[in-house]
Design a protein around this nucleic acid. Structure first.
Lengths: 236, 236
DNA sequence: TCCCGGCTTTGGTATAGACCAGAAGTCTGC
DNA sequence: GCAGACTTCTGGTCTATACCAAAGCCGGGA
């Protein structure tokens, strides 16, 4: 139906992928092999692959090749279930790597929480995996008074769980922003993907029941790795 | 800092755009002119433009050229404020074009609302504009019993307003799914953009307070045109 | 057995050109 | 003055080729 060759290629690849998913064990043949099979150049072939990448059907890992993307993770950013819990609840294997622990100011966090520009925060930078695929790079910015010794005790567990159980905070008010983005060189490197890969940016500002600021976090997801789901009951 | 030339180009273009936004009146010079200015080929230049497109800084319209993207629309899919209301509330000009009115079954709607596969729906297809830019193609699938003469009276107004005021429905339960996508050829054509342009797909299933199915809708947004915002109070 | 170095393959980047169809501007003839 | 035809310009698509750096494989030596 579509006239452009690369769009026909896209359809043929889509079919090939569904047919050979098992046989290929998730990894596509090399670009050169595919280009030859379809009697075209790598440039055109890559246009077709980029289409499928945009749809979330396939993704690439560094210089290792193209891979079939696993099912999207269902994720409700309005709930405070821990990452580990809801990943496991979907039959997947979660993993977290802590990349950095420090204390310093961060303007977006200060602005979002209504604090002074030079307000310092406990900063946790971590990378999270689903079934050994790095899908999320995130930064957490915690108001130090709310969790004084956080950086000395933190080892990758659920932050919200800690805030609730150890410091008794009630994460009552949340302001959530989501935008699509192109991953920055830093985020891309931390997720082992090419710079400019499509991502989803989720930011949360969290205050307690007295609207006292507790925490701000910035999440950078690979765009094909999640489906955001929100369930609401009762008229807003 | 980045070594790849197209990434340096990206930065230079980003700077150029902020400098000349007013002078250019929102439209960039032609690809050929830019490629010549930077002593490179259109292919490489287009790689840099694609980066900025991914970030949402610029977009293209059909074969007319590249344009600087306006600020993102703030949008809360959990509220039922009409499109016209919240667009105007942000000082922008909304517009709606009705593309199709028909009655027929639609499998995703039936599945999402828990109805039989062959359940017919009143279908409204419309395109929505912000400041004369088409940013949203959407399909609404309404259970006919909930709004019998809908198709004969509908002329582009707020559907949720109609459901509430004319038929007295209480849109109490909502299940919302959001995923990034590549726009299908049909959606892309309706929004006057190239096939495969990045988009954001939002689907809602809506039931009343007795969990009786009322409506299902599928929204396809240009990815750079909105920021999803959700405000929550009280522990979930 | 295991580590290390070299070779091969891979994707990432870039050049130089070409043709097409649609959009937009221009010019002509009524 | 205006509608319609023509020309120009634009992005969209495609070919053919090349080099690089990183990843991964393989084989040899400790």
């Amino acid at each position: 139906m579509p006239d452009a060759y690369y769009l026909q290629l896209t359809e043929q690849l889509r079919y090939l992928i569904t047919q050979h998913a098992a046989e290929w064990e998730g990894k596509l043949p090399s670009e050169r092999a595919l280009a030859e099979r379809f009697s075209t150049t790598r440039v055109t072939l890559r246009q077709a692959l980029a289409q499928l990448e945009g749809e979330g059907l396939i993704h690439r890992s560094n210089r290792r090749g193209w891979f079939i993307s696993p099912a999207r993770l269902m994720y409700d950013p309005t709930r405070d279930a821990g990452f580990n819990d809801y990943v496991r609840a979907q039959g997947r294997q979660p993993r977290t790597a802590v990349l950095k622990l420090e204390t310093r100011p961060h303007l977006p966090a200060a602005r979002a929480l209504g604090l002074a520009d030079n307000q310092p925060f406990h900063h946790i930078r971590r990378r999270r995996y689903v079934d050994d695929r790095a899908v999320l790079a995130e930064s957490l910015w915690v108001v130090p008074e709310c969790a004084p010794e956080l950086l000395t005790i933190y080892t990758g567990q659920s932050l919200w769980g800690l805030l609730r159980e150890r410091w008794g905070h009630h994460l009552a008010n949340r302001s959530i922003h989501m935008v699509s983005e192109a991953l920055s060189p830093m985020d891309a490197e931390e997720l082992f993907v090419a710079p400019g890969t499509a991502g989803l940016n989720i930011c949360r500002a969290i205050l307690d029941e007295q609207r006292c600021p507790i925490e701000y976090d910035e999440e950078h997801w690979l765009h094909d790795s999640l489906c955001i789901c929100v369930e609401l009951s009762g008229q807003q």
